[in-house]
Design a protein around this nucleic acid. Structure first.
Lengths: 208, 208
DNA sequence: TGTATTTTTGCAGTGACTGCAATAATGGTT
DNA sequence: AACCATTATTGCAGTCACTGCAAAAATACA
């Protein structure tokens, strides 16, 4: 188990976690203004300069953000011919989770920090923009292979359709995020996501 | 004409424009890394400290960003019982324009800067989040007075419906923004907005 | 053990941004 | 014109995020 990672990788993971834990903990305990790179680095037992080997900014450390990626497993139950909106929103949800390198227990802590310091949401949105780009590419690839969607409406291409799908599906994701961060309840975010999708359908059915 | 504004207000407007023009001009001519607060302030003939009386950050100066607001005139042709999605997206578009204090001719310059330095888009998104909040409140108020929308679907309230409407309408706005900034054509953004809305309708009709 | 690679670290520097208090400019009043 | 209240500008001193660079330490590998 501990041999799956080399000593180097294990230490890296430990330092990453120590920095993130110190940053988010200090933010909750003493306030975000007390979170300085120097203090966090000292708390984690590394030099301030090393901090930037792990995080591009102190906000990233507080939220434990990492570069998002589209994993193979996430695309497994992506069905172009099924409920496309649901597929896309679930894919976005899955990829969005990859920007949080921390464990699930840490999720509530982060949500609490974001709730107290909404400025941090902005930084998270930056990452979500990256998620949108990644998912758009992945969706476009799937659409291009589908007989139904390979040809887009006149004046548009497959990338446009993918982009629009991601933006619309992203609406329900953002709805779910705003709901769960302003009301830090126990209910899971994927529940909120499905509820948001349902509300969206209800409204749109009336409007189209 | 020049008496409509007091001397103080006129000078303020001039200094604002000088700072913004210097910042965006330097970004285009010499690159964004050459845009420093000191240089911009000197170029505009004010002290560096004064710069921060006008802009909260140097990015704001480059893009000429101002606090968004919902004007009376924007709500004039908002029709709750008509094409609600179109109404909301047009309202969002109108409010989004208020974050750009500069004149229309300056729009292309800013789009060019954003195109060359996509990091700036993030700062703009921060303002768009504010736009979303403002428009959500305005829309919720209108919905509450409407007989059709005053009662939301079970489990949701009017604010939820307004939020979702804004997010969905925002999707077509973001689509239009991405289109026009990656392809800085002459066609107006409101055209792109309507086209995006049309694409969204086409796609959603197939999916609902 | 020796060597190549990666990581950490210190250092010195740039530049954004802030609070504060003095000074100057402006608006309105007598 | 003279006077005062309000508001804007400025300099100063300081904090802190973030960077490039090169030396030193840790790790991997043969």
């Amino acid at each position: 188990m501990s041999q799956l990672l080399s000593l180097r990788d294990r230490k890296r993971a430990e330092t990453w976690a120590a920095l993130h834990l110190s940053a988010s903990g200090t933010a909750l305990d003493k306030g975000l203004e007390c979170v300085t790179v120097d203090a966090v680095a000292a708390d984690a037992g590394v030099s301030p300069r090393t901090f930037f080997n792990y995080f591009a900014s102190k906000e990233d450390a507080v939220l434990g953000l990492q570069e998002p990626f589209v994993g193979e497993s996430m695309l497994a139950d992506f069905d172009v011919d099924g409920d496309l909106l649901a597929s896309v929103s679930h894919l976005m949800h899955a990829v969005t989770r990859t920007i949080h390198g921390s464990a699930d227990e840490d999720g509530n802590r982060c949500r609490e920090v974001i709730c107290r310091y909404p400025q941090l949401m902005h930084r998270r949105f930056q990452y979500i923009v990256k998620v949108e780009q990644l998912v758009t590419d992945a969706v476009a690839e799937r659409l291009a292979q589908s007989s139904r969607w390979a040809t887009a409406p006149a004046g548009y291409n497959v990338e446009d359709v993918a982009k629009m799908l991601v933006l619309v599906a992203g609406a329900s994701l953002r709805f779910a995020i705003q709901k769960t961060t302003s009301h830090p309840t126990r209910e899971s975010q994927s529940e909120a996501l499905d509820q948001g999708m349902e509300l969206m359908r209800n409204i749109l059915k009336e409007l189209l």
